[in-house]
């Protein structure tokens, strides 16, 4: 492709040193390479324990890597300081994790609208976008004004997904977005992903649901368990 990749991984290494377990070293990523272009959806492929979630977290900046480069929109997250990463998270990288981190007393609608507000939308505009998404994801309107702490797993996950799609992110990270959804809502998510790709969003995803994966993946990035250093 002629376009510049929005995400470029080169030789990404990550290991953990578990000091509470006698300094045990655990290698999770070794030499991962990838170029992800606008409009593409790359699904990480491999069994549990090959570091798929770790790679997503490394790209989001949560895991600090020990080698290689993670370049997002010109910034190398592998060496960037906290402020540069915060700026990328505000403007460039969206992240839908497996679980919603519940904030006490904040209404579902506001949790969804928050990334849009952080990017400069007025409260009304942001809430409008949030309401559209929650409606598409079939979250009953009577729940919108409630904090999601008491919601079911599926309801929480739909709030989480809506929050991920409320902004047109250049790069969107999805970690098992449909794990706790029924077929109907999973289909809505697939649609949202298709629309995002059409708008040029590049997506890096973990998705064990074979049907969904077949529908959304532009290509797969095969991952293997890392040989543990001696």
């Amino acid at each position: 492709m002629a376009m510049q990749p929005i995400l470029s991984l080169r030789g990404v290494h990550k290991h953990f040193i578990q000091h509470l377990r006698g300094g045990l070293r655990l290698d999770v990523l070794a030499g991962v390479d990838l170029d992800l272009h606008p409009g593409e959806c790359v699904v990480l492929d491999g069994p549990s324990g090959v570091g798929k979630s770790s790679l997503i977290k490394a790209v989001y900046g949560t895991y600090r890597v020990d080698g290689g480069h993670i370049v997002v929109a010109g910034t190398d997250i592998a060496v960037a300081g906290p402020r540069a990463i915060m700026a990328l998270r505000r403007t460039t990288i969206g992240h839908v994790s497996q679980f919603l981190r519940v904030v006490p007393r904040v209404a579902a609608l506001d949790i969804v609208a928050e990334p849009a507000r952080a990017r400069g939308d007025t409260p009304e505009v942001a809430r409008g976008k949030a309401a559209d998404l929650l409606r598409r994801l079939n979250l009953p309107e009577k729940l919108w004004s409630l904090p999601p702490a008491t919601f079911s797993g599926g309801e929480q996950q739909r709030v989480n997904i809506a929050r991920g799609f409320v902004v047109d992110w250049p790069l969107l990270l999805l970690d098992e977005p449909t794990a706790s959804l029924d077929a109907e809502n999973a289909a809505v998510v697939a649609q949202l992903i298709d629309e995002a790709k059409d708008r040029g969003t590049a997506i890096l995803a973990i998705c064990h649901d074979g049907v969904l994966r077949a529908r959304i993946a532009t290509r797969l990035l095969p991952m293997k368990r890392v040989e543990q250093a001696a």
């Binding site: 040193i17 578990q18 000091h19 509470l20 977290k57 949560t62 895991y63 600090r64 906290p82 915060m86």
Partner: peptide, 30 residues
């Protein structure tokens, strides 16, 4: 947004809050 972990009057680890809490590096932070 960010954390500094202090021990014995010094900052032993710092970074984004999720970095420090989800990927702590120093023995004390772990």
């Amino acid at each position: 947004d960010r954390l500094m972990v202090m021990q014995g009057g010094r900052v032993i680890e710092e970074g984004l809050t999720d970095q420090v809490l989800d990927d702590p590096r120093e023995p004390y932070t772990q």
